[in-house]
Computed example of a mutant assay.
Amino acid sequence: MKIESLPSNYSAPEQMLIGSNSLKNVQTLIDFNGFSPILVGDGDTPHIWINVPMNQQGTEWYPLVKDNFSTNPAVIVLKRSNGVKVTTPDGEVIDCEKRNDGTIVVHKLNLRPFGINVTANSESLNIMNTSFSSSGFSNMRAVVGLGGA
């Protein structure tokens, strides 16, 4: 989805932990030529949007998950009292929860099944050939921007 026109019901979390990295007031994880493949939004439980590229250039995107609802029968959104997990036949895409202190914790992230080289586990966030561990990001539009005009 275009970063300039994020969903009206999306609210960026004040605090998020992903791969031992702390994000504070960060709008989106990745800016890929003005598009974001994944949004992790705030709420009583995390709200997930996943968009996958329809072409190699990343100029057209398909909404696979919209606010915790799958648009594809092969993609399953599992909700629990404080968290959300999205799975495909290729495995888990994201597993996250909201803690009592309001922090959203992303335990696992894997966008590789969609041709996007982004993964995270409890130790690091890996975007393409760059690994982030124990880093802090605050007051940013995106942690990583890819592509350019």
Rank of each mutant, 00 (worst) to 15 (best):
M1T: 10
M1G: 04
M1N: 01
E4W: 10
P7C: 06
S8Q: 13
S8P: 03
Y10P: 14
S11V: 14
S11L: 13
S11W: 12
S11I: 12
S11R: 15
A12V: 03
P13W: 10
E14N: 13
M16A: 04
M16G: 03
M16T: 12
M16E: 04
I18C: 04
I18D: 01
G19K: 02
G19L: 11
G19T: 06
G19M: 08
S20R: 11
S20F: 07
N21L: 06
N21M: 05
S22Q: 15
S22I: 10
L23G: 03
L23R: 01
K24T: 12
N25G: 07
V26F: 02
V26Y: 00
V26I: 11
Q27I: 07
L29T: 04
I30D: 00
I30H: 02
F32A: 01
F32E: 01
G34T: 00
F35D: 01
S36G: 09
P37Y: 05
I38P: 00
L39H: 05
G41M: 07
D42G: 04
G43I: 08
G43Q: 07
D44G: 11
H47D: 05
H47F: 05
I48G: 00
W49S: 02
W49F: 09
W49K: 01
P53H: 09
P53A: 10
P53S: 08
N55M: 03
Q56V: 05
Q56C: 02
Q57F: 13
G58L: 03
G58Y: 10
G58Q: 05
T59R: 04
Y62D: 08
P63E: 12
P63K: 06
V65I: 09
K66H: 03
D67W: 05
D67S: 10
N68G: 06
N68V: 02
F69D: 10
F69I: 10
T71R: 11
N72W: 09
N72E: 13
P73R: 08
P73A: 05
P73M: 02
A74Q: 14
V75Y: 05
V77S: 06
V77H: 07
R80V: 09
S81W: 07
N82K: 12
V86M: 01
T87N: 10
T87D: 08
T88I: 06
P89N: 06
P89F: 00
D90F: 04
D90N: 12
E92H: 02
D95P: 00
D95K: 10
R99C: 07
D101W: 11
G102P: 04
T103K: 02
V106C: 07
H107Q: 14
K108P: 00
L109C: 08
L111I: 05
R112A: 14
F114W: 15
G115K: 14
G115L: 12
I116G: 00
I116Q: 02
N117W: 14
V118L: 11
V118Q: 07
T119S: 13
A120R: 04
A120V: 12
N121P: 07
N121Q: 12
E123N: 15
E123G: 04
S124H: 15
S124E: 15
L125R: 02
N126R: 15
M128N: 15
N129E: 13
T130I: 11
T130H: 13
S135T: 10
G136I: 10
F137M: 06
F137D: 03
S138Q: 14
S138R: 14
S138T: 13
M140K: 13
R141P: 00
R141A: 14
R141W: 11
V144L: 11
G145Q: 13
G145R: 13
G147R: 06
G148Q: 08
A149S: 12
